[in-house]
């Protein structure tokens, strides 16, 4: 009797499929799943956060201006006080024309930053950069910006962003991240700007407010022209939130022009301030 061990076709045991290709495919699939989950969590978190009563939100933040930490705090010189005073008066007038819900109040702050930007943050705080104030051609234009930010506050966009961010942080922690290192990122979310719809809604609110305040929406488009010019001059990372908003600038300007409608220059635009000559647009 004779025996032999025939050569075994070992390759049958080992898959011919490339492990790397499979790995990449799985990684892509996992990535897509996580992205979908993140999007759902962000939206759900934002939706839930809007249910937080404004009074709770205001009590929660108190006098802190979330997101201002990385903005240069203005020196309290005479001019700063004067501009801030004007901003407060204007904001109060704008807010009065915007049908804010009962108990909602807006507090405006002036930052010494020269980037033409303004943002609304938690607790009804609103920050206007000196760079924006300096460049606005008329009070109407400035009022539009303030009204736009008040529109965000009215729509509870800041807390929605933070709520969404918090849910995302939760996901990151679940995936093995460090929650504490994420907190500053969440605070910064309010400065990153909002969704296309939120921006559009804020624009609509702002134009309505402007219409009520001055009887016309003239001068509104000028805001975006100023921002557009600035964006073209400074191609840098610190793009103003107002500028980087999603409805493309051209479309927003178009909308502002349409809103101005039949306004033909009368009543004239209100100059920012007679004694603010030095702040006139350059």
């Amino acid at each position: 009797m004779s025996w032999e061990n025939p050569p075994v076709p070992h390759e049958v045991n080992v898959s011919r499929e490339s492990v790397l290709a499979e790995f990449l495919r799985l990684l892509a699939g996992l990535g897509i799943c996580v992205l979908i989950l993140a999007a759902v969590l962000y939206l759900a978190g934002g939706w839930l956060a809007r249910w937080v009563p404004f009074s709770t939100e205001a009590a929660w933040v108190g006098d802190r201006v979330i997101g201002l930490s990385n903005v240069v705090e203005a020196p309290a010189d005479a001019e700063h006080t004067r501009i801030l005073e004007r901003l407060r008066t204007l904001t109060a007038r704008v807010a009065a024309n915007m049908d804010l819900p009962q108990g909602m109040s807006v507090r405006v702050h002036l930052s010494d930053n020269d980037v033409p930007n303004a943002f609304a943050t938690l607790g009804g705080h609103l920050v206007v950069n000196r760079g924006l104030y300096r460049r606005m051609p008329s009070e109407n234009a400035l009022a539009l910006v303030i009204a736009h930010e008040v529109g965000h506050i009215k729509a509870r966009d800041p807390i929605a962003a933070v709520g969404g961010g918090a849910s995302l942080a939760l996901l990151m922690v679940a995936l093995g991240g460090d929650a504490r290192s994420l907190a500053p990122g969440i605070a910064r979310l309010v400065q990153l700007g909002y969704s296309r719809q939120a921006e559009s809604a804020a624009d609509t609110e702002a134009l309505l407010g402007l219409q009520r305040m001055y009887g016309h929406a003239g001068g509104a488009a000028a805001v975006f022209e100023v921002l557009d010019d600035y964006g073209r001059e400074h191609r840098e990372i610190t793009m103003p939130t107002l500028l980087s908003t999603h409805p493309a600038d051209a479309r927003r300007i178009q909308r502002m022009r349409e809103a101005a409608g039949q306004w033909n220059g009368t009543p004239a635009l209100v100059p920012l301030s007679a004694e603010d000559g030095m702040d006139a647009p350059q």
Partner: peptide
């Protein structure tokens, strides 16, 4: 690489090809 590839694959199940060759 095998470890990560296998842990990823174990999420969805199926042949752990990364380990099949190792065991072989």
């Amino acid at each position: 690489f095998k470890r990560i590839a296998a842990s990823l694959k174990s999420l969805v199940g199926g042949r752990l090809t990364a380990y099949e060759s190792l065991m072989d």
